[in-house]
Amino acid sequence: MADLMVDQDARLRRPAGIRSIRLGDVSVSYVPDGDVRLRPRQLLQDTTDEVWAAHPEYLDATGHLVGSVGGLLVEYGDRALLIDAGFGPQTHEAPDGPISTVHGGALARSLAELGRGPEDIEAVAFTHLHSDHLGWACLPAPGGDEPVFAHADYLVSEPEWDRRDLLEAQGMTEQAAALAPRVRTITDGQEIFPGVRMRISPGHTVGHAEYVITGGGRRLIAFGDAVHSPIQIDHPEWSSAFDHDPVRTADHRRRLVAELAEPGTIGFGVHFADVVFGHVRQDGDGPAWRPLDA
């Protein structure tokens, strides 16, 4: 047990690599693009220095919370769907605020390792319209003029796309324009791919979407930015500085944590460290988030 906890602690301090699971006929894989280093107190503003002193396992040597940036590949036979498109081939550094550094650029290589090329992706479905999820869908590929998924449909929840003015207000007018010709809006409960349904979970953004993937008697909930770190599974009341409506997000997160504790249910946290797939176990024996393969 001690060795298991040491390994899990190490995984909480590094970004995720490629990880895959099967749900019956559906294969689901995390596709790394890069990573993000976050200032924990600025991200989760209801926490204290004492909280993080008690949980050093979540922080790297510089005191930053480590997160992953990437997408989720869903495969059914020869068909392929991508949920979120990483940050793209760029780096951002900030002297203050929740984000210290974020960089991307590996998503195309990660897809290739999984035996897929951008041309195999029939659609890119977004959890929401933030730059660390839009990345490769609206930025030119290195050495070219078009995004790598230029031929794919871009699936966005209807209320999220209806308020794309908020995207433009964040200085992302060019990204919105790049997305617009390919966007197909989707509605709550709509099946977008075999075994994949979208559900709207507003709070982080006005039309934030989660994707529920079912197969083989199990379901996986890709919950996007409803949860940024596994520590929030133990403390769903802690909303992030990026949440559009912190109270609404916290209410949803409480329900989500209870749902993730149900039998046959797996969670996927796109910004988690190297524990992106997991179960919730509220048994009082250690953290509630248990990596699927631990």
Rank of each mutant, 00 (worst) to 15 (best):
D3E: 09
M5E: 13
M5P: 14
V6Y: 14
D7P: 03
D7L: 15
D7I: 07
Q8N: 14
D9Q: 15
L12S: 03
R14H: 14
P15F: 08
L23E: 02
S27Q: 14
V28L: 12
Y30F: 14
V31A: 05
V31R: 13
D33F: 06
V36M: 07
L38T: 04
Q42N: 13
L43Q: 02
T48L: 11
W52M: 05
Y58E: 05
V66P: 05
V69Y: 01
L72H: 02
L82I: 04
D84W: 07
Q90E: 05
T91G: 15
T91M: 11
V102W: 04
E119T: 13
I121T: 01
I121D: 00
A123C: 07
A125I: 05
T127C: 08
S131I: 12
G135F: 06
W136R: 01
P140T: 01
A141D: 10
G143A: 00
E146M: 12
V148D: 04
Y154E: 00
E160K: 06
E160M: 06
D162F: 07
D165Q: 10
L166Y: 12
L167F: 11
E168D: 15
Q170R: 08
A176W: 04
P181L: 14
R182Y: 09
R184I: 06
R184C: 02
D188I: 00
G189N: 08
Q190F: 02
I192L: 08
F193W: 04
F193Y: 00
G195C: 11
G195A: 10
V196K: 03
I200D: 07
S201Y: 09
S201D: 12
H204N: 00
G207W: 06
G207C: 06
H208G: 03
Y211L: 01
V212W: 01
I213D: 02
I213E: 00
T214M: 11
G224M: 09
H228S: 05
S229A: 14
I231R: 08
E237W: 05
W238F: 00
V247A: 10
A250T: 13
D251Y: 03
V257Y: 10
G264M: 14
F268N: 08
V270Q: 02
F272K: 06
A273R: 08
F277Y: 02
G278P: 04
V280A: 10
R290L: 15
R290G: 11
D293A: 15
A294R: 12
